[in-house]
Structures are given as C-alpha cells and as structure tokens.
Amino acid sequence: MEVDKGKGEAEETRKVAEADRDTVTLKSSDGKLFEVSKEAAARLSTVLAGMIAGGSIDDNGTDLKQIGSEALENVVDYCNKHANSIPSAALISSSISFNTAPFKEPEEWERKFVDRLSHDALFDLVEAANFLGMERLLDVTCHKISEMMKGKSPDQIREVFNIKNDYTKEELEEIRQELAWAFYDD
C-alpha cells in the first residue's frame, strides 16, 4: 500500500501532461492523490462512473473531500487489485435498496480484504463505499461489520458504535422481557 501511495504522489506531476489517460486521479480530504484504473472506477463505483461520463474528472486529482486518505487508499486498493473479478456496479446497484433476497456472500478475497482492516478503517470504508456508490464494496464491508456484531451484547455494540444509552433502566428491562427470546443463549 505504501508503494501505491508513493506511486500516486510521484506520478502526480507527470500525469498532468498526459492527455488521454486510462486512469483517474482521486484526491482525498487531506490532499493525497491516488490513481485508479478508469475502467475499474467506472465499473465499481456508480458515482465515479457518473463523474467520468460527465467529464467532471479533474486530471490533477478529483476532490473527494468526504473521504480520508486511508479510506481512499483502501478503495483504490480494492479497485485496482480486484476489479477484474467483480461484476459491474450497474448490475448490482439495484439490489441495494429494495432487495429482499439473501445477501450475496463475500468472496474469499473480499473477506481477506476487509479482515485485515482496522476498526476505524472499516467504518471509514463503509462510508466511502456508500459515498462513491460502490455497492459491492458496501455489501462486503457491511457484511463484515454485521459479522463482528454477532453475539455481542447491546453494551458492546454501544461502545463500538459510540452510542449513548438513552434508555432508562426500566425501559431496558421492559424490552428485555418483551424480547426475551432474543436474549436467550443459543
């Protein structure tokens, strides 16, 4: 990853000169530049696809102010490494909002991809994927987070998601009673 990043920065200057490129340069919120294959970007991200098609790609680095460099690095990493094995974003984009079918299981390499991420990175990546309209990546990251949530207590979840408990003790007890079945150990 360090290599990728270095490459991105190094290429920044000469890329300006190149007219017809097959890559796009993305700029993170903290100003770092990353390069990703145009084809992969367009295929995996509905947002980038739209930008490319609409000509709003900046050769000097398209500003993605909402995405930090670490997350963007992961996004680029994901695109570059695995673009070829992923179906077009357009094909699966419709499955996100209305789908009631079971979610597609992540593939092995996708598992590994998210497994190595830190907690922060994972949550950042979810947001980045959401922002960029990368349905599959969103799927994979959400899947990972949901896996981590399994078997956790509400307390643990609160901690992880940084949520304040705004219930009273009595209310919690009431819910626990009503939802007793959900609190049984398997």
């Binding site: 996100i96 979610f103 979810v126 947001e127 959401n130 969103l138 959400c142 899947h143 987070i145 949901s146 896996e147 949530m149 399994k150 078997g151 956790k152 207590s153 509400p154 979840i157 609160r158 998601f161 949520i163 304040k164 408990n165 705004d166 219930y167 919690l172 819910i175 626990r176 939802l179 079945w181 959900a182 609190f183 398997d186």
Partner: peptide
Amino acid sequence: LIVEILARLSAKSLYRFTCVSRA
C-alpha cells in the same frame, strides 16, 4: 448505513439490539 448493516444481522441479534438506543 446502519440499516445496511442491521439488514445483515440475524433476527435474534437484530432484536437484541433494539436495546442499544432509541434511535
């Protein structure tokens, strides 16, 4: 996004997490 994540939980986990917060 929360919903995206919750949508991947089992029913049991899901309903257990109603305890997390009002939201």
